[in-house]
Write a protein that binds this DNA or RNA. Sequence first.
DNA 1: AGGGTCACGC
DNA 2: GACGTACGTGACCCTA
Length: 869
Amino acid sequence: MTEKLILIDGNSLAFRAFYALPLLKNTAGIHTNAVYGFTLLLEKIIKDEQPTHFLVAFDAGKTTFRHATYKDYKGGRQKTPQELSEQFPYIRKLVEAYHIKHYELPNYEADDIIGTLSKEATANKMETIIITGDRDLTQLVNDHVSVYYTKKGVTDIDHYTPAFIHEKYGFGPEKIIDLKGLMGDTSDNIPGVPGVGEKTAIKLLLEYGTVEEVIAHLDDIKGKKLNENLTLHQADALMSKELATINTAAPIEVSLADTLITEDSTDNKIELFKSLEFKQMLGSLDTAPQAEEVAAIELASLEEINLDNRTSILIDCFKENYLKNEILPLAISDGNKTAVITADAIARNDTLAAYLSDDSKPKVVYDAKKTTVLLNRLGVEIKGIEFDITLASYLLDPSNTIIDVAEIARLEGKSLTSNDQIFGKGAKMAIPSDDVLNDYFAKQAVTVLELSAILKDKLEKNEQLALHDELELPLALVLAKMEMRGITVNKDELAAMQHELQGRLDTLISSIHSHAGQEFNINSPKQLGVVLFEDLKLPIIKKTKTGYSTAVDVLEVLQGKHPIIDDILIYRQLSKLQSTYVEGLQKMIGSDGRIHTRFNQVLAQTGRLSSVDPNLQNIPIRLDEGRKIRKAFTAAKPGWVIFAADYSQIELRVLAHITGDASMSEAFINGTDIHTKTAMEVFDVEKDEVTPNMRRQAKAVNFGIVYGISDYGLSQSLGISRKAAQKFIDDYLASFPNVKQYMDDIIQQAKQDEFVSTLMKRRRYIPDITSRNFNLRGFAERTAMNTPIQGSAADIIKLAMVNYDKAVKATEFSAELLLQVHDELIFEVPEEEVEAFSLFVKDIMEHALPLNVPLLVESDFGQSWYDAK
DNA sequence: AGGGTCACGC
DNA sequence: GACGTACGTGACCCTA
């Protein structure tokens, strides 16, 4: 193998990383951003360069031999901030964890260590790369040595080679010190010659070669002021050159041989990353099978499992959709022995089936909803699930992207083979041999049991155990039933719509093509852009990264300028309906005539649910054209109806509750229309003076408050300037002083805790709240303000679902809960029950979580979802 | 396969 | 001044 040496200027890169990244902090209160940036850099270098030798050099102390030459060397420098200096010990630990040598030498700078070693490497013709955020080091460049200079942050890097330097300056690396001598360096307080900057210095050096030669030719130098400055400051120039010159013969006690990388174990890294809480890094560590990977598990027989112990139950299916895909074996572990049984044999094994259905036997699982559905498909109703590590991991930090047991294991610093490693990815996915599969499932079961104890502990510390036990886990079982139940969708209805829509689309396509004078793909924004803005020469309103924007707001501006625009707008609307809903939904109707969506309970950062395969939370409603899709969603049986109950203004009611704002609360108590009330306050008018336009604007502001949009977002939705939007927000906050107070307080709290919480103690971490990047911080602040509102609303409807499920069992209602759409629940109900059921559901939803303002639930029913409006 | 763009819901 | 600005899912295009 060819040898390659990496030399890192530790101090300068620590500074770079510190100023490039937001001020991260771990729970112990130690700042970690510079360490994190340093880690990213090390990872990148090791991956990209694959060095054989490596050394990180640090500055030793305040004074160096250069101070003897010039006492003000590096004078006037700002003190290193405490937030950075406390990180240096960890950076050293980090370097050690990578088994990389680090070195510092009293009286010398990191530069000199690097210079001395690079000289030795060059003598040995060893390829060397110096990484630094300081341009001084570029003087060391030669045919064997290149310098990677971080321009910005730690990843934007210039590669200084002899050719690069020639290109940039017109001379070689050996003249960098002359350049510094003439122009000086403010950051190191090197004086140079006044009035000489980079441009002048380069010109002089190209003409005369060196500082000494410039001085020797003072008489030839034109320009009165320049000549005067050079004459007056020749000594400074010579001294500056000396200061800038790196010592390549420092008395270092390391040799090239010491920098050889000999070991590559991840143990120390795991420990350090855990303490620093670098979850991402921990995750990426274990991609390759580790030495500590447990050997194949010895499988026990089912009879050997102690069913009096708490057990972990691990069952899965091939690919994502557990509602229909092939079911794989089940593994069960009691913490001592682990057994695996095929899916077919589960229901036939009476002991196991009885155990699984026994509510008094505690079980822990990886995904309660999936587990419940899969076992249900096998004819077993599982009871007694008391802990779900997927839910736990999500509740501890909703930004955890939980894809398999291995992912949760990684987050906790444990190692396990991943699903991808066992099954493969994409088209190559396949079920492995029984041996491999059984071993993998057994290992997962063991890991689930281990993790459950750890995660439960953490939830307890966060006071989130009730959130898991009483909200999310029971909800998972409610959702499992909803998913299995599905909702009836009338295929003929959709087929009829498809036919009608296709006729209209065909007409529109011909019309658009004839307006354009050519045939093209209207669905391609790229082709459409060319037609509109090049061929038809319409004015360009907005551009995207890749070309012209053809989004709706752009097309609306162009309306009236060309008849093609109206056609395109209608085409867009109809083709969306056609492809996503009319055609898309038909494909999803099962043999039972129903669509079975899956709710993702551990994805949305705010605590909301999401819906996939298909998404039934975004069925059109705003425009009647689209709303008609809902006609296809019907009750299953004759005499049954679709019943929909939705919370009115739940987020704003939560806001009134959290802030305790009197005038807002009053509006809800008195049943005043909240948008009218907002308009009254913001525009300072009486109720009967509120115009429809004022109400519309007030509604947009309320929308903005609920969704945490920016002044920019509000300006877009109202079609006004950003300044005017900001004024609206200011007026709003002046009108509702408690809301203003809340917004200020929650940002402070987020800064202190780095997370915000909902009424049910759901958390969301907001590390960017301390970012020095204006945009990131602004975004983080809006997240901090919005999440408790939206997340508490999510808590409330989830609680209502759990309470409903519990309460309905004790009634005679045969109604079934089908869907949840954030603030709305959809049921199918026998028509004769509707009246009583409506009161029942309204009561449960309105009292799910008592607030200081009333919650209001409105409902309706009809033959289809369309009619339940 | 993965990104970008667009559009639907709350 | 900062250059991208609620959260999701999915269809389609286009490039790889």
